[in-house]
Structure formats: C-alpha cells, structure tokens
C-alpha cells in the first residue's frame, strides 16, 4: 500500500513539472486521451443533451406554455453541470479502464521494477505523462463536449419543437465564472481518473485475473470520485454565489 502511494506521489510530483517530461511520451498519451475519446465524448454528451433538451422543452410547454427560457438555461447547464459530468464519466470508463489495464500489465510483468532498476524512472516516463495528458485532455474534451451539447440541444429543439437555433442559442447566459467552474471540474475529473487508474494498476499482482480486477477497480473508483467531486463543487459553487 505504502509503495503504491509512494509511486502515485512520485508520478504526481513528476506531473507537476510537466515541462521536464519526455515530449514523445506526453504527445502519445495526449493522442490516446483526446482524439481517440472525441467520438465517444460527442456521442455521450450529445445523447444526454438531446434527452434533457427535449424533456425540458416539453415540460416547459406543458406547464408554462413557453419555451423561450430553455435556451439560456440549457447552455448554462451544459457549461456548469452536465457537460463536465458526462465528460468525466466517459473518461472514467474509456481512459481509466485502459490506463489501469496498461499499468497493471506492466506491474504484474515486473516491467516497472525493471525500468526502475535500470534508472529509467517509470514514474516520470510512464505514469506522469498519463496524468498530465488526462488533466489537459479532460479540459480539451470538456470544451468539445460543450459544443456537442449545444449543437444537440439546437438540433433537438429545431426538429421536435420547431424552435429556431438562433432563438435557442444564448451565449450571453454563460458567465466567465461558469467557464472557470467547467475547466476546474474537467481538470479535477482528469486528476481523479489518473489517481484511480494508477492506484488500481499498481496494486495488480499475478497476471490476467489481477489485470481484469485492476481495470474494474479503476473504473469504479473513477466514476465514484467524479460523482462526488461534481456534487461537492456544485455545493461550493452554490454557497459562493448565495447572497
């Protein structure tokens, strides 16, 4: 346990000095996190946005007979709440499982120990680039997810309720502080997914069974961590804005 925490700590310290990381390894991890996650992020965020926009529009029409306020509320919800949350869950399931399986394979085959023995610094060469790529990638995917969210809402309202996209789109409703919250949530989600994957992967001992267990534990830890982080930041955000 203490060795795992030490390795995680070493990787986190190395990640904080990201400019000293091998550029090739960092770029490779960024490629794994961002471009390869984009299709899944777009599909998941758009599907959730489509469902929420349609339900919100129908409820508003049924109860108030007016859909004009849906646009400004929907865009804020995408920036501050559901955009970052769905991206976090997607990263947990897609990248968290993959990274944990890779670390667990390296650990169970004693490759990390061999690297350390030959002075190759596995924390700096293998683990830290994953952490930096996850934090930066999560923020980038958050922005991509936001675009997908808004486009999905526009398309849904246009096709289902014949609301013009120009009427629906209200960028002025998004405040700078809301964007900061989104970036903060995405970066925190990236860090949580990294911590869960590294912690579970480094615990793996004994081959195929251990790798499967590590991937499962990483996914569970990351999903749980992201949900708790989102709820906690929402509460702090609400209290900070309260008069």
């Amino acid at each position: 346990m203490s060795a795992r925490v030490a390795s995680l700590g070493g990787a986190s310290r190395a990640a904080l000095t990201w400019w000293r990381l091998p550029p090739g390894a960092l770029l490779q991890r960024l490629d794994e996190v961002v471009p390869r996650s984009v299709p899944l992020v777009i599909v998941t965020v758009a599907a959730v946005g489509c469902a929420l926009a349609d339900q919100a529009a129908r409820q508003a029409l049924r109860l108030l007979g007016d859909q004009s306020f849906i646009g400004p509320e929907y865009i804020v919800l995408g920036v501050e709440e559901f955009g970052p949350l769905v991206v976090a869950l997607t990263l947990s399931l897609r990248v968290g499982a993959g990274f944990a399986a890779e670390i667990a394979t390296l650990q169970s085959e004693s490759t990390l120990d061999a690297m350390a023995l030959f002075g190759q610094e596995p924390a700096r060469r293998v683990l830290a680039p994953m952490g930096v790529a996850l934090v930066l990638g999560a923020v980038a995917l958050g922005l991509v997810g936001f675009v997908a969210w808004e486009l999905a809402g526009m398309a849904t309202l246009l096709l289902r309720s014949e609301v013009s996209p120009f009427t629906f789109f209200h960028p002025e409703a998004v405040r700078g502080a809301g964007v900061v919250l989104m970036i903060l949530k995405c970066a925190a989600a990236g860090a949580i997914v990294f911590a869960a994957a590294t912690h579970a992967g480094l615990a793996a001992r004994g081959g195929a069974v251990a790798v499967g267990e590590a991937a499962t534990k990483a996914v569970v830890g990351a999903v749980l961590g992201c949900l708790i982080m989102s709820a906690a930041l929402d509460m702090l955000w609400f209290l900070a804005r309260s008069p």
């Binding site: 897609r94 499982a97 993959g98 944990a100 399986a101 890779e102 667990a104 394979t105 169970s108 085959e109 081959g207 195929a208 069974v209 251990a210 790798v211 499967g212 590590a214 991937a215 499962t216 996914v219």
Partner: peptide, 9 residues
C-alpha cells in the same frame, strides 16, 4: 493479461 484489460475497456 493485456487482452483482459482491453476487454474490460
């Protein structure tokens, strides 16, 4: 072992 991890993923 890697194939197990990829299957979970």
């Amino acid at each position: 072992a890697g194939a197990i991890g990829r299957a979970v993923y």
